[in-house]
Write a protein that binds this DNA or RNA. Structure first.
Lengths: 197, 197, 197, 197
DNA sequence: CATGAATGAGTGTTCATTCAT
DNA sequence: GATGAATGAACACTCATTCAT
């Protein structure tokens, strides 16, 4: 890694963030030491402070990074065969390593500790809602969804259901069960007749 | 706090557990010090060790306590007007203090670190599934549910959906929105036609 | 134990001291808790403070007690067959439980911490020297000792040798080896011709 | 303390070990805090953990260090005028600082609590026996020792006697007395006629 | 830019001692 | 006289952060 490369700093930040991501979402934020993050990429603790002002800032960055990755995973799943998009998404997701597929829950545990983390999570949630909303709209145009009045509401239901299924997996539900529960639930939510308020 | 009360020890344990619950939910398990838990109820750190052998044991107890509260909230909701049971449940739940209703999300973050916590959470999950399963069976007999083959599967879907909605609330969704999303989602899941595998 | 007995306090002190002795010389002073000493005789910690002002005072008393016992053991050994007195002593001693035969070493480790303990140990040493000196004098009159000029000097040599042998046992020397080494050494010391200064 | 010295770490370890030795001898192992050891050399507690993984490891190192010093004192004494070797040894030894010459008595008090300490002490004892045994063999060839059958047995007697004399010094015997007792005792042990079993 | 020695505030836990009952 | 709940100062050990080199 030649040190004269113009965006050397950015590359270094990226290397560090990736190391932090992996370790944090494997062992939790508190149980991941700066030492460990540094050793993992062959530098020393002090170096991290050349690129991040504090551990909290590094967590925030790692969090952002993971949310972005997840968002693009979502985008990709929905770019393919539209009628299979949602199912593809969870199937792919469940095959990811634990530290990726559950990072979200790990991050939630930090939500009350730092307004910055809260902001990142809330923004990510809004991002997912938005991506999914436009996907639902497409489905609706194709007649694959009941004439529910508001795609955003459907999107929020699906996201909630998805997150709940992930929790069930953490609590011991098998991947097959989870996928089958998810498929049926999604179908029920999408096909439900317009509710009468 | 009169020391001659016969079950003084139990009351003391309860006081400590409640204090721990509140603080742990607010700041997370690792960031809540024994000092803080003690000071919060006007005793010193050493006193806590008269009632709990370790911080981990105290966490476990707090966890169990909150799970029990949630379980009895569930039971109560289902004992009333059967057609309103599920909705009642979330309405009641959302009115519980944050540190009760969200505590278990915080606990989830510890699930990989402590087998005892994992056991408590898994058992609680199984307990919820079982309570809800028998409730669904009743609904089915009353014809309030589609002829879905397996009440347990319906129960698991509902629990996942419910948990996901709670996460949404943590992420900023308002209680009204949450209740309305929940009502519609539950109805969709209950009324869904038998899936064809 | 009727509490009106006039020297109830003395009996209680004795009971406590004995409990402390056993535990202290089994596990060491620091590793024996007041709780343990109390529980061992079926009372609670607070009770000990009715009879001793501090743990240090209790240690001192226990120390004194043990020294006295050892002194009388010595006296007894030397009251019997005079020509076998010294060997009898170590044979008997080595058959005692570790916590009795090594209590001396345990106490030595505390010698720098408390002037009171130092005083007790020094006085005990002087006591042993004195007992042994008069025993040597008797042996001398019987012609069983070389005409060494000073029984006290012989006594001090024997005590040093004896203590050293005990240390060897702690370091792994077997009891048989120890006894045989002791017997030969004692004989050498007793029979040595008067040294020429 | 220049930090660029090549074996800075070794020097630092040595500094710490010496500080620990002094304090442990003075106050005992349990009563010497890491804080105290650190403050004594002008660093903070945390620093000690850069060089030793635990207090027990530091004790072990201090123990080893002192044993080595004693061993080399012994070697040196025996390399000089052979007929004066043993006496030289105790004279030299008694001039060492208290925390070196008595340290191992303090260590004995830990012998039942730590297998590592026990190993160090036993190995040191065996080392002393071995050094002294070969010295006795030399003396024997020179005719300076009675024809006692086994130099190792003589060595063990001498070591026991020596250790006992050290204890006497701890109990208040003056250095002169100790040296004179030791000289006479050694002479008696070396010159003793072969015992008849 | 990178190091790694050093820090210092923090952690959970223990335990001799006190005192209201 | 005896209890046992409570204390508080101590402990070994950790770790994010700093800074001279």
């Amino acid at each position: 890694m030649p040190k004269v490369v113009p965006d050397y700093r950015n590359q270094a930040r990226e290397t560090i963030t990736e190391s932090a991501s992996k370790l944090i979402f494997k062992s939790g934020f508190q149980d991941t030491g700066m030492d460990e993050i540094a050793r993992n990429i062959g530098v020393t603790k002090g170096t991290l402070y050349l690129y991040f002002p504090s551990k909290a800032a590094l967590l925030a960055e790692a969090c952002r990074r993971n949310m972005t990755i997840l968002e693009s995973t979502m985008q990709k799943a929905f770019d393919g065969d539209i009628s299979k998009g949602i199912e593809n998404f969870i199937v792919n997701e469940l095959s990811l390593p634990d530290y990726v597929k559950f990072h979200w829950i790990v991050a939630m545990a930090e939500i009350n500790k730092s307004p910055e983390i809260k902001k990142i999570l809330v923004e990510s949630y809004d991002g997912y809602v938005s991506i999914l909303t436009s996907f639902i709209s497409k489905l609706k145009k194709l007649g694959l969804v009941s004439n529910s009045p508001d795609p955003e509401i459907v999107a929020k239901k699906l996201i909630a259901f998805h997150n709940g299924i992930l929790l069930s997996v953490m609590l011991g539900e098998s991947a097959e069960n989870a996928i089958s529960l998810f498929r049926e639930g999604v179908s029920a939510i999408l096909q439900a007749p317009t509710p009468k308020p």
